[in-house]
Design a protein around this nucleic acid. Sequence first.
DNA 1: ATGAAAGCGCTAACAT
DNA 2: ATGTTAGCGCTTTCAT
Lengths: 364, 364
Amino acid sequence: MKKSKPATLQMIANELGVTVTTVSCILNNKGGTYAEATRQKVLETAAKFKYRPNVLAHGMRGGKTHSAGVMIRNQGYFLNRVINGIHDTLLNHQTLMLLAWNDRNHHQLDWNPEVEKLIVHHLLDRRVDGFILCSSSENFDQCYVSEILERHVPLVLVDRELKSLNADFIGTDNVVGGEVAARHLLDLGHRQLLCCSLQQCSNAVARQEAFDRMVGDCAGATTQTLDFFGEDFHEVLAGILKNPETRPTGIFCINDYVALRVLEVANRLELSAPRDFSIIGFGGQRFAEPAAMNLSTFDQYPYAIGEAAAHAYLRHVRAKVAHTTPRILRIDPKFLDKGSTGPVPKKAARKQKKLCAQDAITAP
Amino acid sequence: MKKSKPATLQMIANELGVTVTTVSCILNNKGGTYAEATRQKVLETAAKFKYRPNVLAHGMRGGKTHSAGVMIRNQGYFLNRVINGIHDTLLNHQTLMLLAWNDRNHHQLDWNPEVEKLIVHHLLDRRVDGFILCSSSENFDQCYVSEILERHVPLVLVDRELKSLNADFIGTDNVVGGEVAARHLLDLGHRQLLCCSLQQCSNAVARQEAFDRMVGDCAGATTQTLDFFGEDFHEVLAGILKNPETRPTGIFCINDYVALRVLEVANRLELSAPRDFSIIGFGGQRFAEPAAMNLSTFDQYPYAIGEAAAHAYLRHVRAKVAHTTPRILRIDPKFLDKGSTGPVPKKAARKQKKLCAQDAITAP
DNA sequence: ATGAAAGCGCTAACAT
DNA sequence: ATGTTAGCGCTTTCAT
């Protein structure tokens, strides 16, 4: 059983009685002064030997490895689609995505900065031309990002912005998302609002804060916040919804999953949208469950975010001189009206009017 | 803006006035005859310079690249978990998974063997130590798998078995799955059965055929098959379920998604499991929708399959001489009873008895 | 206990 | 129109 070594330039050169330089130049279309006959012979023999360039050798010569280090956790629809966008775009530009996941692993590798550092080292060891990262914590610049920047290896961040860094960033414009959601509900006349948020997630908080600000700017409108991972979320929510006095008429959920859980709770109370309240999700994830079909939400364009990240990456990697001003790109999410919002229910509308009238009287 | 090159052995050697050989041997614990003082200095300086070995150079010397070429499409829970298992296991063994997805891409790269070939070439160019693949079609051995085998690069197949090849294979034991599903329903007394399958998917067909065979071996039991991607699946199914005469009392669905769609159709007809019929899914995917909570199904242990694939890979890559007999591993899926199966409904049971009695009479 | 030299496959500058 | 040479970073064998 003889191990057939992959073909090298040397082998082709030997076969034809020429030198490696000749073969190299012809195959790379460099220094085009070669006899047509030689060109043909070289190309033929390369094909016959199934020659494939050795990226390792090329990389060693100081050239590019045409490999991108990508570290993004394998969590949920959004990041998954982002990775897809990166993968496809890079492949279309002769670049291979070296993907490593930094989410919680099963055994030894618990979820911590050390794992991410290990992965970054693995990728650096392979001399990737640059990085596209989505760190799982906000304070990782001390840990390994600095190592990347010190070496002046191009770096693009996705989804999770690390403020202190001057690296490129591509993500969702959460402020626009929160504002449009609020605007939509306010325009429909809703004044008693609720935001089901995730306090742990900075992106969710950004959306929620924008939502709150917008509501705050509207006279007579109030909003409260509920943390999905807070204590007894389901019970507290049910309590609020049960009582017509406290029941919000408009609900903004920080993602579609949360929205579906809210709809479940409402469903058990025989409440439905948009009859009894309006509800908006976020993310545009296509869940299998039928309720998701009628949930108004926001498309975050995750695939486009991935594409944009890949393009930012390629821009850096191909630049002759390092770019100094980072490119920050926040993509506007788009509201998808699927019919889970509508006008304020009549009973609630009457109550609202009364309150407004009172306000007008008690105001100085 | 000076580009700080990554540290090399040469730099460390120069710093200390020794040679690269010394540094190399000390850092790799080779040829242990070095003065303790030198050892210390070398280790210190390496740390100071943040030295990282150049995997490219190591690979060029004929050594391993400690990179595994993995091509598995990014489709659904099962394969996703498989990839996770591979990723974690390899990382625990100082090997980086170079993941490429071969599912339908957005733009130019349509879903075809050429894309897979392109990806395999990309990976070969990076001199991966071996491959773990899940090809998206059954007849790809002609296309690129042969190239891999010709070079005697280790190859492990996952989930989708390519019969003609003598490569390792790790996947689900579909025969066991189909048989256990049939056994379970038959043991509960069900005799009128239905299998909702996917004719396109060889794994689904394998489960269905095992199911059919088992049912065929049981006197008085019958089963019919419905293709989920067939014409008017929903209408045809509704027709069958509506009529108590034709309604099966036991349904085996080839995966959980199909099962949930079946439950939806039944739900609209005011039929529910296990009251009106028993139903079993396959895959154990955790869907967000509540109906999934109570669906009896099979766990395929996708993570374990990934781990096993990684171990098979490592076994090959680390072997001094090539293994000749391929390792075939089919992991038994495990039935998860979540309560969607039960005894035959009384009405249907009476009908069954009558039929059996008739059979007894008409039989010779 | 350490060093010298060759070579992995390739490219680019510089001959001929 | 083609060849020579040097070197990328590392390991290995063979000196010293």
